[in-house]
Amino acid sequence: MINEASMVPNPHDLLWGFAVAQLPLDAPAWVRGALGRHAPVVVRRALAEPGWVAVGVRGRTREERFATWMRLGDVRRRVSPEGVARTGRWMRHANGAWPALRALAWLAPQLDRTGLRWGVTGSLGFELASGLSAAHPASDLDLLIRATQPVSRAGAEQLCRLIDRAPGSIDVQLETPYGALALREWASGAARVLLKSNAGPLLVSDPWAAERSVA
């Protein structure tokens, strides 16, 4: 068991330890089936009571998503997007010709050289971390860059140019202390950008000072 005081799950973290018995009685059958495969739950962006974390259960299709809550004391294992990136499991994936995997193989060393903290999220991140099938040949590559300090507009533009050299469709989110925003939106120069926070979407001018820049 993980000590609650030492663990602060972040959005996109994968958590193991959620039991089927904790589901509400009206939970769809597919949710019970997913947890029966020993699938992790995904930390979602929402406010939670002390000692709890907002999570979601993934099913086999995009439409199968179930929001619920997990006690921090029940967490047995946690894998962050950065942890998924560190394993390098995509290099041994049976479907390495998929565009998302080819893009990841090309981008990984490039991003490592930037010194940025980055990780893999979405269906591919889930599959790489859990070993359960979730991605498919047309899956996008979803990446997270942990931006605890401000990223300049010019720096964001540079990252977009780097990403555009990789194959496939790639979505990159900048994760600030106040929430996440799309890298491309920040690079666009827009006066205000959409920040996805735990309290809901915010339109802000400075994602690193969200409490002072809400529209």
Rank of each mutant, 00 (worst) to 15 (best):
G51M: 12
G51N: 06
W52Q: 12
V53P: 05
A54M: 09
G56C: 02
G56P: 01
G56A: 06
V57G: 05
G59S: 03
R60L: 14
R62Q: 11
E64K: 00
R65K: 07
A67C: 04
T68H: 14
T68P: 02
W69D: 02
M70S: 05
M70G: 06
R71C: 15
R71W: 05
G73T: 07
D74Q: 13
D74V: 13
D74H: 15
V75T: 10
R76S: 07
R76W: 02
R76D: 03
R76G: 05
R77E: 08
R77M: 05
R77D: 03
R77T: 03
R78A: 11
R78F: 00
S80Q: 05
S80T: 15
S80D: 02
P81S: 03
E82K: 06
E82M: 14
G83P: 01
V84I: 10
A85L: 11
R86A: 14
R86E: 15
R89I: 00
R89Y: 03
W90F: 08
A94D: 04
N95I: 00
P99E: 07
L104K: 03
L104W: 00
A105S: 14
L107T: 03
L107D: 05
L107R: 05
A108W: 00
P109V: 10
P109F: 01
L111Y: 13
L111F: 14
D112I: 07
D112R: 12
R113T: 03
R113H: 11
R113P: 00
R113F: 00
T114Y: 15
T114E: 14
T114W: 12
T114I: 11
G115W: 11
L116K: 13
R117N: 15
G119N: 08
V120W: 06
V120I: 13
G122S: 09
G122E: 06
G122Q: 08
F126A: 05
E127M: 04
E127S: 10
L128N: 07
A129L: 05
S130A: 10
S130M: 09
L132I: 11
A134V: 00
A134Q: 12
A135M: 01
H136L: 01
A138M: 10
A138G: 11
S139K: 09
S139H: 06
D140F: 14
D140Y: 13
D142L: 01
D142F: 03
L144R: 13
L144D: 10
I145P: 01
A147T: 15
T148Q: 15
Q149A: 13
Q149W: 00
Q149L: 08
P150A: 01
P150N: 04
P150H: 05
S152T: 15
S152R: 01
R153C: 04
A156D: 08
E157Y: 02
E157T: 11
Q158N: 13
R161W: 08
R161Y: 04
